[in-house]
Write a protein that binds this DNA or RNA. Structure first.
Length: 472
RNA sequence: GGUUCUGUGUCCGAGUGGUCAGGAGCUGGUCUGCAAAACCAGUCACGCCGGUUCGAAUCCGGUCGGAACCUCCA
């Protein structure tokens, strides 16, 4: 039985889906105002693992992850660059998709963009105005606000009392009745790109931030769905406001609220505005692979904060390589095995609020057993361990044989390298035969410099192309 | 001011009222011409002060430190 920590009730609860056998998930995706950094990608990886685990647990999963393709920052860039807002949004969306792919994050079932749901937003806002939860501004600005005072439970998700909150200040205070009221619809401003507006019953304008998610969840998942996820930084005001407006419209909304911890660097949340960001390209420039980054992100629990450091990432890479090494050697020696069953410890860990940290510990147990079997020549036991290890790796999206990680590997080149290395190893073998250790080691050292690591095994030498470590 | 999270061994990082986290590192051993990999053994712990308890790192109170949110944010 899967148990998940729910932010709203602030406790770990049994996951009971709305419809037996089905699970509906909504993840607040990114605002595509720039390329993603690894902090952004953490939520994608975390919820990808949740999704895989739900599928493994027998659920039919509908997973929606949105793209916010219009917001203040995108509009500012639009003006700065003299390009339509959608050009900027789409450019960054493409970068985001590439980053997800490199990390083996599966595409969601649906990936709506905020601007694709404008009619649904209008409908929702209309309902809220009708039932007295929202009001069009009286100053002719075209803004429509949600009235926080109309919803007694406001603050339930973030556990705050409205009277103790600092007043929100959403730009110039136009015509809010209460400073805590938030915009559902923003009327035209002469200072913004004029191609970023839609007509509406309240005049030309653009969406407020929170309404998009309420509209998209309703359209793709219905008035009630199982899990709503996002980073902890979204709890307030974004998720609080989403829940408030959807419930005010009569929708029960999310049954579970999941929030992942932040990726920090230098003691602060990784953020472009702080300037402490690391992206995938920087990781690769350091000689580390995306799959190793993914392992690093799954090593701690999803709700824990990660204080990023290269040292810790490199340690994680070493740990992953240990697992990877077993998978490769076991496959070579014991023959391939399709993924089989996960260990009981692994399943228990995953069911316990997705404790990937404990799950990885369970994985390493089986890897060690498999290595022991290989050392003892017990190929049956090794093959059994291999199947289990691959099953567990697959659920974490870390299987080294996953085609997602083979991208960019050119088979033709691989064969050429294979032949060249074989030639070099022949020379080394003959040097070893005449006990010319210096010559033999020279061959090995040169291969090493070229990025080819040679190991002698009872079955003869084997070689692997290691990730090139950074040189300082 | 309010809300929430957090402080574990050399490092990363789980967890539970009493019995092994796991990984990285280091030391010793096995194997190897040497290495590498692997295996075996060892290494090292719960911010501080009180309290509850037969027993607490795990519960409670206090205290010190760090972070997130209350403004755009994964």
């Amino acid at each position: 039985m899967l148990r998940l920590y729910d932010t709203l009730t602030r406790q770990v609860r049994d996951f009971e889906p709305r419809v037996a056998g089905q699970a509906s998930l909504y993840l607040c995706g990114l605002t595509v105002q720039s390329g993603p950094h690894i902090g952004h990608l953490r939520s994608g990886v975390n919820y990808d693992v949740l999704r895989r685990w739900l599928v493994h647990s027998g659920y039919s999963v509908t997973f929606v992850r949105n793209i916010t393709d219009i917001d203040d920052k995108i509009l500012v860039k639009s003006l700065e660059q003299g390009r339509p807002f959608w050009a900027i949004a789409y450019e960054n969306e493409v970068l985001l998709e590439a980053a997800y792919r490199s990390l083996n994050v599966q595409p969601p079932t649906y990936e709506p963009r905020a601007t694709q749901c404008i009619p649904e937003m209008h409908e929702l806002i209309g309902v809220l105005i009708e039932n007295g939860h929202a009001y069009p501004a009286q100053d002719g600005s075209g803004d429509v606000y949600f009235s926080v005072a109309s919803y007694p439970d406001y603050g339930a998700l973030s556990n705050q009392r409205p009277d103790e909150m600092l007043a929100a200040s959403e730009g110039p205070e136009r015509a809010k009745r209460d400073p805590r009221d938030f915009a559902l619809w923003k009327g035209v401003k002469s200072t913004e790109p004029q191609d970023a507006y839609w007509s509406s019953p309240w005049g030309r304008g653009r969406p407020g931030w929170h309404i998009e998610c309420s509209a998209m969840t309703y359209r793709y998942l219905g008035p009630e769905f199982d899990i709503h996820g996002g980073g902890t930084d979204l709890v307030f005001p974004h998720h609080e406001n989403e829940m408030t407006q959807s419930r005010s419209a009569g929708h029960p909304f999310a049954r579970f609220w999941l929030h992942n911890g932040m990726m920090d660097l230098g003691g602060e949340k990784m953020a472009k505005s702080v300037g402490n960001i690391i992206n995938i390209a920087a990781v690769q420039a350091r000689g580390l692979r995306p799959v190793e980054l993914r392992y690093y992100m799954l090593a701690p629990h999803y709700r824990a904060r990660i204080e990023f450091s290269w040292e810790a990432l490199e340690e994680a890479a070493t740990a992953y390589q240990r697992v990877e090494g077993f998978v490769q050697r076991a496959t070579e020696l014991a023959g391939g095995s399709e993924p089989t069953v996960v260990s009981a410890d692994f399943a228990a860990a995953m069911n316990d609020d997705l404790n990937t940290s404990a799950a990885l510990a369970a994985l390493h147990e089986v890897v060690r057993e498999g290595n022991t079997a290989l050392a003892a020549g017990d190929l049956n036991a090794a093959r059994e361990a291999l199947g289990s290890v691959r099953a567990m790796l697959g659920l974490l999206g870390l299987d080294p044989f996953d085609p997602a990680y083979a991208a960019g590997e050119d088979r033709g080149i691989r064969e050429t390298v294979d032949a060249l290395v074989a030639l070099a190893l022949q020379q080394r073998a003959s040097a070893r035969e005449r006990k010319d250790w210096a010559a033999a080691d020279a061959v090995r050292d040169q291969l090493k410099q070229a990025g080819v690591a040679v190991e002698d095994t009872p079955q003869g030498p084997r070689w692997t192309i290691g990730a090139e470590r950074h040189a300082g």
